[in-house]
Design a protein around this nucleic acid. Structure first.
Lengths: 225, 225, 225, 225
DNA sequence: TATGAATGAGACTTCATTCAT
DNA sequence: TATGAATGAAGTCTCATTCAT
């Protein structure tokens, strides 16, 4: 059983939608070239820090052409955001066995996260950026959700099947887990550490422990001010 | 043993002060007014997305005055970054007993993180932003380190005294923990969940479990693709 | 016989005029301090290149005080221009025997020009500047004339008494002479040469020769293009 | 022997060109249009006194376009300074016979100076301005020298061949001569006189007399103060 | 269709002048 | 009267977008 039971249809319907007026060629060569170039320069210099001409230059097209494929810089950013989220979503979820969330599925998920962060650092960095809110449209914000929702479902499933503990609400568990993973690679990018394979394995095990059923609960004995 | 001294009183008095007449800091120090205003607008709209005039307006001063207090917008951002980092640093570490990192100290630290994120959401959000690298000067980057270094020392101390497990390198443990906490409040800010006190307590316990000594290690049995 | 037959009266009347409303003290201490300071900084950095605060600082007064003595920066520049022109005028003409323009009077005039350029280089440089037209008022332009007119009269007198040649109209003679002198010190200021006393004496003699009665006139035999 | 070649034809054609349709340079080269416009407005209002938008307007381009052709206002001023100095240099020196500096060559040089000052008054005025030092780069200062050096060589040659007197060091002679010429046209621009052809011829003869070998030297008998 | 020069609104910053103290 | 912090109009420059070629 796959999370994305019909991944191709979803992709197909999006294609059909934008192909209507024959004025945009979605998977055209240049379209993709521009997205790829934009990802590179945005990851390097940020969205606000990058004028349009360098994007076009990096893509090997003229500025005028870029505007034939995207209505505006903002439209380009949103398209890129959604495409990149979709790429991550696909990378993480396609073919992931989710009948039950056991340790092997978790390890697989972790592995996929790591390969994405390692192999597509620009994409990972771009998605991480937080000055997005000023130009992301509702649809883009939605694409954020389209990635997180399946992950939360997996966690809920794990809790229902007893593979994960119920000491955390699923949303909270996911926020912690996702934040921990992002924090790991952010720390590496900022130069605070270098992640060896062993580090990643140990981090994975620690995260699993966090999510798995508890054997004890330490009492809250915070120092009262 | 205290790192600094009297955190709560300082915090308390600041809170009381802001409740005074005009809802804003008293006009004692225009420098501070501008920093406060900048924090609000930067948190709301990002640094690149905020022109200087709105900052001045929010601070209740003219643009010219703003430039009397800060050489440039970039200088303002850096000053704000350092001041905010210092505020967080002070909030977290002042008076924190660090002779040994036991559960009670950890809970206190967690509590302080939560009160900071709750009481000063703009500061928390501003520090989280990731498009900083394009304008932060070396001194500002340094201030990042001045917060993280003590935290890492605490973790190392915990590992040496056996209160924390050694299954994670201290840097990795800190990156995971910090990322998890940030992820929690980021998820709330983005509207993915609402954090109850119980959620926070459960998350705290889960994080402690992650860091505390392990009783077992699950074998890596990832599905090979 | 003096050129300025009643120098004091002219000065006196100007004083009386501005002393009327008792709101400007013309020869007051600060008034003069500001003029002196303005001359220094204008000579060094140009009028447009100098903001008002540095002038006040150089004068040892506050900006507010400066504006009590001068209505505006433009008014200050005009007052300075007129005062400096008057200073030069006085330096050159006061007590100069002009019953007849013979060689000794010419030499005296040259000597005075040189001492002014040497002893008050800021004043000389300031008067030389040519971006004046954008802020000089008619009265200031007039002060230019008040210096040149007596000089032209001297030349005319010299021509009438036969001490100078009549091969040049008086205005033309004066423009040539004045330009030559200015060119000399401008070249030195720009670093193209260093003027020794002998250079100045030789230049003086050359200028005298130019103005004195001709013994021959070379025919115009320019190459026709 | 010629320094360069065919000055008059180049000059003539340029003159003819400007008489074409639109009163302004043909729009062949926007770079040149901007330089021409800048020369006009700078000559009229000074460099510091002229904002960028009027330059663009005078050139018939937008401000943004101006910045496509010149990195900054300062870069524009420097480019203009160098181009104008080169134009003057070419106008004066191209094809000038300099095997020996005799009267005919001197008259030719004078004629060229006059045509330049008459036909390109803006260029002449712009070069004369003295608030240049605050924005001219080393290369521009160098271009000043590239004009003066050949002139000084000509004077030195004239002194060596006995056509000019040796009573003045070459640098001094040149400073006097150049200053005298500048003073002449500056006086006309300021409205102190109007130069007829005869005035110019007489001034030319007077300058030649100043430079040519002396027959006598008057003793210095300045009045001692 | 593709190009990239041109546009001009709007960004950051300066500075002549004012005015509360 | 003296001060200098405050003001905001105006300056220099950038960049998302358009359009003639």
């Amino acid at each position: 059983m796959n999370i994305h039971s019909q991944p191709d249809r979803a992709q197909g319907s999006r294609t059909a939608m934008t192909a209507q007026p024959a004025e945009r060629q979605p998977p055209s060569d240049k379209h993709q070239q521009i997205l790829d170039a934009a990802l590179r320069v945005f990851a390097a210099r940020g969205v606000h820090g990058t004028p349009v001409p360098p994007i076009a230059r990096e893509a090997g097209v003229s500025v005028g052409s870029l505007y034939r494929y995207f209505d505006s810089k903002e439209a380009l950013v949103n398209a890129l955001f959604q495409a990149t989220k979709a790429k991550l979503s696909e990378h993480l979820l396609t073919g992931l066995p989710v009948a039950r969330l056991d340790r092997s599925v978790f390890d697989e998920l972790w592995h996929r996260l790591c390969t994405f962060a390692r192999q597509q650092p620009d994409a990972f960095r771009f998605l991480e950026m937080q000055d997005h809110h000023s130009y992301l449209d509702p649809q883009s914000r939605d694409s954020e959700y389209r990635l997180l929702a399946p992950l939360r479902q997996i966690i809920e499933l794990g809790q229902q099947t007893g593979m994960l503990g119920t000491h955390l609400r699923a949303e909270v568990a996911m926020a912690l887990f996702w934040g921990a993973f992002v924090g790991l690679f952010k720390a590496e990018r900022l130069g605070y550490l270098t992640l060896s394979d062993q580090d990643l394995a140990e981090a994975r095990d620690a995260c699993w422990r966090t999510l798995s059923p508890q054997r004890d609960t330490a009492p809250n004995n915070r120092i009262e001010p």
